[in-house]
Amino acid sequence: MTDKRRIDLSVPSAARMYDWLLGGHYNYEADRTACQLLLRSAPTTRELARNNRWFLERVVRTLAAEHGIRQFIDFGSGLPTQNNVHQVAQAVDPQSSVVYIDNDPVVLAHGRSILDENDRTTIISADITETDYIFSHAEFKRLVDLSEPVAVLFISVLHCISDEAEPGQLVQRVVERLRPGSFVVLCQLVSEDPRLRQKVTELMLEQTQGHWGRVRQKQDVYDYFDGLAVQPPGLVDVTDWRPDSELRQRQRSIEWTEFGGLAEVPARP
């Protein structure tokens, strides 16, 4: 069921490309080359990646400090960097639990080496669309009590899922398992320029050998949030989602944006 791909360092991965854009060290020549090609089409992609990472920090801190969330499920967690979900959440409450999910072999290897010493955190090897497998996993059940509120994170990952895999249905399947009072964080790459969407989508499909979805539009993100209670300030460029300091320079991405926000799972009729 889960992805058993061998590590082929000649094929770029979206996770390792993101790591390079953030100034990380878990990337290889193929990833760096692919990033340089991407930057030719979208020169401010590095700024986009940084703004998205800062959004993750702010939204997790908000969920932990203001909404009292102590359980986090991070779909498509990517490579470890500074201020990961568990570090931000556990700074508020050390007993916060975090389940990371990814299928990139490099992500899994580096993630496990870091998380082995933290018994409130784990990483599950799975394709994020394998919801039955994920929710029945022993490590998931050890750390997550679905009778209590949970925060589910789909941060900069749904554009990696093809239309055939139905990312909207994935979100719906996950939400159906959550009790009211839980939260969903979601953002993905969008552009209203059809030429850019096509160019970047084709580039990423070619570079990752098909392990990619497509750049979508804002309306797609609105559709993902259907039936959820979107929290202020609404669905926005994540750069503008409750910025915590004017001292942190916010250079905007121009060609495309990470668009999304935070929503609560409402009481069911």
Rank of each mutant, 00 (worst) to 15 (best):
K4Y: 04
D8A: 11
S10T: 12
A15T: 11
R16C: 06
D19A: 00
L21T: 06
L22F: 02
G23I: 02
H25Y: 10
A30V: 07
A30Q: 08
D31T: 11
A34V: 01
A34E: 01
Q36S: 14
L37Q: 15
L38V: 10
L39T: 12
P43W: 07
T45W: 03
A49K: 00
R50H: 11
R53M: 02
E57H: 11
V60E: 01
V60R: 12
V60C: 06
T62G: 06
A64S: 14
A65K: 08
H67L: 05
H67A: 14
G68T: 08
R70K: 12
F72H: 00
I73P: 01
N83L: 10
N83I: 03
V85D: 10
V85R: 07
V85K: 09
Q87R: 05
V92H: 09
V92M: 06
D93E: 10
V98I: 11
V99L: 02
Y100L: 08
V106H: 10
V106F: 06
H110F: 08
L115H: 03
L115T: 13
D116W: 05
E117I: 09
N118G: 04
I123A: 13
S125N: 15
I128Y: 04
I128C: 14
T129R: 13
T129A: 13
E130K: 08
F135Q: 14
S136P: 00
H137V: 07
A138L: 04
E139I: 00
F140E: 03
R142V: 03
V144P: 01
V144I: 15
E148K: 14
S156L: 05
V157I: 15
V157Q: 13
C160Q: 12
I161C: 02
E166G: 01
L170P: 03
V174C: 08
V174E: 07
V174P: 02
V174Y: 13
E176A: 12
R179H: 08
C187R: 13
D193E: 07
L196S: 08
R197I: 06
R197L: 05
V200W: 02
V200E: 07
E202M: 02
E202I: 00
M204A: 13
M204H: 06
Q209A: 12
G210S: 04
W212R: 15
V215D: 01
Q217E: 15
D220Y: 00
D220S: 07
V221K: 08
D223Q: 13
A229D: 15
A229E: 15
P232K: 15
V236T: 12
S253E: 02
I254V: 14
E255T: 06
W256M: 13
G261F: 00
G261M: 05
P266M: 09
